[in-house]
Amino acid sequence: MNLPKFLMGDNTDFNEDIFVIHTEFPRFVINLVDDEIEWFEDFQGADQEELENEVASLIEQASAFYDREMERYQND
Rank of each mutant, 00 (worst) to 15 (best):
L32Y: 09
W39V: 05
D67A: 11
D13N: 11
D10Q: 15
I59P: 01
A62E: 01
E69N: 07
F6P: 09
E50C: 01
P4R: 10
S57Y: 05
E41Q: 06
F25C: 02
D34Q: 03
E60T: 13
E49N: 06
F14V: 00
L51I: 13
I21Q: 01
D76S: 15
Q44Y: 15
E50L: 13
E52G: 15
E60G: 11
V33H: 04
N2W: 03
I21L: 03
R72S: 06
L3P: 01
N53F: 02
W39G: 00
M70V: 08
E60W: 07
E16D: 13
L7K: 13
A46M: 05
E50D: 08
Q61D: 13
E41R: 01
P4Y: 08
Q61F: 00
N15E: 08
R27S: 07
L58G: 03
L3A: 15
V29R: 09
G45P: 07
S63A: 09
N11L: 02
G45E: 08
D17M: 09
V33K: 15
Q48E: 03
M8G: 06
N15Y: 07
T12F: 09
I21C: 01
V33E: 06
M1G: 15
P26H: 12
E41L: 03
I59E: 07
F28W: 04
E41V: 13
L7D: 09
V33D: 00
F28H: 05
E71K: 14
V29E: 04
V20W: 03
N53I: 00
E36H: 05
L58K: 10
N53L: 12
I37L: 08
L3Y: 10
D34N: 15
Q61N: 07
R72K: 14
N11Y: 08
Q74D: 12
S57C: 03
F28C: 01
T12C: 05
F40S: 04
I30R: 04
Y66F: 15
V33L: 12
E49W: 02
D47G: 10
M1S: 13
D35V: 01
E16V: 11
N15L: 09
N15C: 06
V20M: 04
D10Y: 08
N31Y: 02
